[in-house]
Computed example of a mutant assay.
Amino acid sequence: MYSSEIGEATEAVDVSRAGSVRLDDVTHRYGRGGEVFTAVGPVDLTVRAGEFLVLVGASGCGKSTLLRLIAGFERPTHGSVRVSGTEPRPGEAAGVVFQTPRLFPWRTVGGNIDLALRYAAIERARRPERRAELLARVGLEGTEKRRVWEISGGQQQRVAIARALAAEKPLLLLDEPFAALDALTRERLQEDVRRVTDRTGRTTVFVTHSADEAVFLGSRIVVLSRSPGTVALDLPIGLPRGDVDAEELRGSPEFTELRAQVSHAVKSAAAA
């Protein structure tokens, strides 16, 4: 039987460690003049190095906005964001996986990975070995010569994950990467991501609106309130990680209890 630990995360965190994230009094607004819309805030949040944090909440609560702020794609209207102790810059702070794979269709699977390796300044001589390692990590051995349109949507998303891992950055950000996939493919990729991030030890921030997905993936879950998004619940997840039986984990009473708790929190936060 699995056991869970439920409560507030209060221990001190070294925010200078590679992959750690710190948001201090962050508020972000869009628009100007009389058309200003507050998307999130105020938010205070710390993500420990090596942690798998899941941001969950109803549509429009600001989950993706927070992810873009952490990635450095946008700067907060108020407050500060720090990744590994410094202000994040686009393309430098983290590997990012979006809702759609965003692969280059004129390149092969291997060509998409090679491009990411080139931008990551990996030596040309090392690229074939590194490419093979990345594809094996996401279960796509032997596909490097196939065209993007020759593989399934789930496989394309695996390529996108491999590409995000290519730069060897300590932080990985994923914005609802499985939302458009069928249920079976989605569960398989959840297992892949859980396994890969556990083995690499990368800090991961994952955005979803699914309580089930959040509990399965996260070592910690943050539920956001309705817009403007604020932290409604900060929940450490004590379910076992590493090489575990996914079906047994999903069927455990502890998993069911946590899923119900998160689902209730999401609905309450959206209605508040």
Rank of each mutant, 00 (worst) to 15 (best):
S3W: 01
S3Y: 11
S4C: 12
S4E: 11
E5C: 06
I6Q: 14
A9L: 13
E11Q: 14
R17K: 15
A18Q: 13
A18I: 03
G19H: 03
L23C: 10
T27N: 07
T27H: 11
R32H: 12
R32Y: 09
G33D: 06
G33Y: 04
G34W: 05
T38Q: 14
A39N: 12
V40A: 13
V40N: 05
D44E: 08
L45M: 14
T46M: 04
G50D: 02
G50R: 05
L55P: 02
C61Y: 04
K63V: 05
S64N: 07
L66A: 09
R68T: 04
L69T: 03
I70Q: 06
I70K: 02
T77K: 07
H78T: 09
R82E: 11
V83A: 06
V83P: 10
T86S: 11
E87T: 15
P88V: 06
P90R: 15
A93F: 03
A94C: 11
G95V: 11
F98D: 02
Q99E: 13
L103Q: 04
P105G: 01
G110H: 04
N112W: 10
N112Q: 13
I113T: 03
D114G: 01
L115P: 02
Y119F: 15
R131Q: 13
A132R: 14
L134D: 01
L135S: 01
A136H: 13
E144A: 15
E144L: 13
W149A: 14
E150F: 04
E150T: 05
S152W: 11
S152Q: 07
R158C: 11
R158A: 08
A162G: 09
A164E: 06
L174G: 01
D175Y: 10
E176R: 10
P177E: 05
F178R: 05
L181D: 12
A183C: 02
L184H: 12
L184I: 15
T185H: 07
T185W: 02
R186W: 08
R188T: 13
Q190H: 14
Q190K: 01
D192M: 14
V193G: 02
R194N: 07
R194I: 00
V196G: 09
T197R: 11
R202D: 01
T203N: 03
F206V: 04
T208F: 03
A211D: 06
D212S: 12
I221H: 02
V223N: 01
I237S: 00
G238W: 04
P240L: 06
D243M: 00
V244P: 09
D245I: 08
G251S: 14
P253L: 05
E254I: 01
L258A: 10
S263A: 15
H264I: 00
A265L: 11
S268I: 00
